[in-house]
Design a protein around this nucleic acid. Sequence first.
DNA 1: ACTGAAAGCGACCAGAT
DNA 2: ATCTGGTCGCTTTCAGT
Lengths: 137, 137
Amino acid sequence: MLDKIDLKIIEVLHQNSRASFVEIGKLIPLSASSVRERIQKLEELEIIKAYTLKVDYSKMGYGLEVFIMIKLFSGKLESFMAALDSFPEIKRAIRITGSHNIHMKVVLKDQLHLQRFIDMLIKYGEPTTQLILSELK
Amino acid sequence: MLDKIDLKIIEVLHQNSRASFVEIGKLIPLSASSVRERIQKLEELEIIKAYTLKVDYSKMGYGLEVFIMIKLFSGKLESFMAALDSFPEIKRAIRITGSHNIHMKVVLKDQLHLQRFIDMLIKYGEPTTQLILSELK
DNA sequence: ACTGAAAGCGACCAGAT
DNA sequence: ATCTGGTCGCTTTCAGT
């Protein structure tokens, strides 16, 4: 299915998704058109789901990054999912097993912003908040 | 500091970090060279930290994605941090507040792989595992 | 800061091994 | 599945506003 060349391509794109086919080809080594064909196949198979970006939220004025887990009240899953799009603070939301149903990464300006956000959340369930200190990996 | 054009550029790159300057420029609208200048500035300021990739781990033979939180034993932080690089299963590791010190996203082949991974982890602390069910956002 | 022009380079497609 | 060659479009630089 996936050979070592595919894995290497994915690794390179993981480090820099804007790398050109020529650039990737030099690291393999492989011609640019073959790199292109393989990447197209990976995209068609949806093994590559998206090309995206890592930004520094603190430098954008959002100094508080937190994980919030929430134990949704019975029957609130539908409305919570519908509300997700209206909160740009929520960068990621994932259903998980365990006593909390949802795990979120949330980005906020300051404590006041966090307080308002939690006040909103308690309509849907019981939230637990953990501050993000630093990224180890 | 960041105006609406910068935010729009970041938004476009977030959806597709391989978008060309011309392409981004058409959506703003702005000339390709101005888009390039702004992106270079965002990179220099390290507001844009990296261009990266989203892959489908289950299609790569890693059917189990989990969050593992760990409450490290006293004095184990150093050795745990040093060990991070040797475990490709750990896709992300973050220091957090609360009774658990570390939050990790871990990708594994199957239950046996998870068991072996947890057996390894208990050298460093008390792990708690939550299976990832689905990504809502 | 933004634009537009010119040169160089990469993406893309076709055809061959 | 990979490569080469040719065309077109994009990137890059820079002079001008």
